[in-house]
Simulated scan of single mutants.
Amino acid sequence: MEGQPDEKLSDQDRMDDRREPAEDEWKSWQRGQVRNTLHLVSAAAQWILLLACLIYLGISSLQPSMPQKDEVAWTYISYTGESVKGTAVNLTAEAGSIQIRNGSIMVPCDGLYLMSLEGNIHFPVQGLLKLTLMKTDKKPHVLWEQTVEESGSAVSLVTVLFLFQHDNITLLTSSEAIISLSFSLVLLSPVDDNVKCQL
């Protein structure tokens, strides 16, 4: 009788011995599954990040690139005041990069310019008044001239001109007047992109 419990214990010990390796094997397999799942999730996240970077780079390379240029040469003038016959109107810039000296606009480089002028002229004397836009360099040259017949008349100009560096542009009236105008000059295309405008 005493031999039977020993046999039972030994059978149970044997079953426990068999169960322990199976449990260890099961736990090891579960850890391996978790590790494989983590590797899979990590790899998927890396691929998604790589794909997002490639899409971003592709979109940014497809966008048209803006030419890297320095500041565009331009000026805007708003003037209200009196003019004296034969004397340049004392223009001053409100905004822009083109310099104005002694009422004259200094052209910074050779090229095509868009010029716009509009306003009203009031003059006390009966008769005609001439408003003249001149280029004053070695040889003064009239760029534009408009005859105003009635006081309070509107003047308007929109044109494209080729101007040379160091040209000065002035505005003159043929008699005393009160002028209210806005004037702008914008460089559309310089002759040589490699030469910097003197701003």
Rank of each mutant, 00 (worst) to 15 (best):
E2N: 09
G3S: 13
E7C: 06
R18C: 06
P21V: 03
Q33W: 06
V34K: 14
L40K: 13
A43R: 13
A44G: 11
A44E: 13
A44R: 12
I48C: 10
L49G: 15
C53F: 13
C53M: 14
Y56K: 09
G58Y: 05
G58S: 12
S60C: 05
S61C: 07
S65T: 15
M66Q: 15
M66Y: 10
T80K: 12
T80A: 12
T80H: 10
V84N: 01
G86F: 03
G86M: 02
T87P: 00
A88R: 06
T92L: 08
T92N: 10
T92M: 08
A93C: 05
A93F: 02
I100H: 04
I105S: 04
L112Y: 11
Y113E: 03
Y113S: 03
M115I: 14
G119D: 02
N120D: 10
I121F: 04
H122T: 09
L128N: 15
L131I: 07
T132A: 12
D137H: 09
K138S: 14
H141K: 12
W144N: 04
Q146P: 00
T147K: 13
T147H: 06
A154V: 05
T159L: 05
F162R: 14
L163D: 04
Q165S: 14
Q165K: 15
S175E: 08
E176T: 12
L181Y: 00
F183K: 02
S184I: 05
S189N: 14
V191I: 12
D192E: 09
N194K: 14
V195A: 09
K196Q: 12
Q198C: 10
Q198A: 15
